[in-house]
């Protein structure tokens, strides 16, 4: 398989997705977890970009791009909600971590 730019993008997306997953599991701080989820989301959008390029010889497929736009809207809404919830959790309990991860950083 020739190493075309689409493949490089797709592989990068997979690596970034795994990095995000690692961050989500390894870090206890809620803001870091929310950021890790955003990193994973960006990876998925990058993957969609690679797919869009691959499906067409010239130019790119608009359908994945439309999905990325919708996906960003959903991700923004979810992130806003998660951050608000994390802030309220901190205001109510003084914690920035889930109780089962209290001993970790």
């Amino acid at each position: 398989m020739p190493l075309t730019s689409e493949i490089v993008f797709a592989l990068t997306a997979v690596i970034v997705f795994c990095l995000g997953l690692y961050g989500l599991i390894a870090y206890a701080h809620l803001v870091r977890k929310i950021m890790a989820i955003n990193v994973m989301g960006s990876a998925v959008f990058l993957f969609f970009g690679a797919i869009a390029r691959r499906n067409f010889e010239e130019g790119s497929d608009p359908v994945p791009q439309a999905m990325v736009i919708t996906g960003i809207v959903v991700a923004v809404a979810a992130t806003a909600f998660a951050l608000t919830l994390a802030r309220r959790l901190h205001a109510e309990t003084g914690q920035t971590q889930l109780p089962e991860e209290q001993s970790r950083r």
Partner: peptide
Amino acid sequence: GMVAAMRYLL
């Protein structure tokens, strides 16, 4: 519920 909801959301 707030703690449980945060875990559920993630």
